[in-house]
């Protein structure tokens, strides 16, 4: 079996399970990556999730859902188990000059996570579409 065939089989395998596997992969990687200091890896997580789809809109949706849900879980656990909210309230006060708005910062944070996921996911799907288009062209 050559490389091209292997790759096609992998894509085919993923396609069959794409409806949920993309989300699962994106979510798991995003959850793993929130324990590293490299926030940029959240884009990689959604990129991986996006690879499961050959439509950029689907990749974007899965990236959004995967990264946002991973960040939400992380944030909720941190806030419930530590005084992280106090810090966000303080940072909100420092940046906005208003205290009591830490929750706004947290919502914005989740929104940013969703945007990063959307972009990474759609880019991942785009890469997949490019590869598939190239393969189709080659097979023609």
């Amino acid at each position: 079996m050559n490389v091209k065939e292997t790759f096609s089989q992998i894509l085919s395998f993923l396609d069959k399970r794409a409806s949920y596997m993309g989300f699962v992969f994106c979510f798991i990687f995003a959850l793993i990556f929130v324990f590293t200091p490299l926030w940029q890896l959240s884009i990689l997580a959604s990129f991986i999730g996006g690879l499961f789809y050959n439509k950029m809109s689907k990749g974007a949706l899965i990236g959004l859902a995967g990264v946002a849900s991973a960040w939400i879980i992380y944030i909720v656990i941190e806030i419930l188990s530590t005084q992280a909210y106090v810090l966000f309230d303080q940072v909100g006060g420092i940046i906005l000059g208003l205290t009591g708005y830490g929750w706004v910062f947290i919502l914005v944070l989740i929104l940013i996570g969703a945007i990063l996921g959307t972009l990474g996911g759609s880019f991942g799907s785009g890469v997949r579409m490019l590869i598939e288009t190239k393969q189709e062209k080659t097979s023609e």
Partner: peptide
């Protein structure tokens, strides 16, 4: 802001 606020580092590393 990435290093400062995003999950995985910065503020999130500060234990109470």
């Amino acid at each position: 802001l990435g290093k400062f606020l995003f999950p995985g580092g910065g503020l999130w590393d500060i234990p109470e």
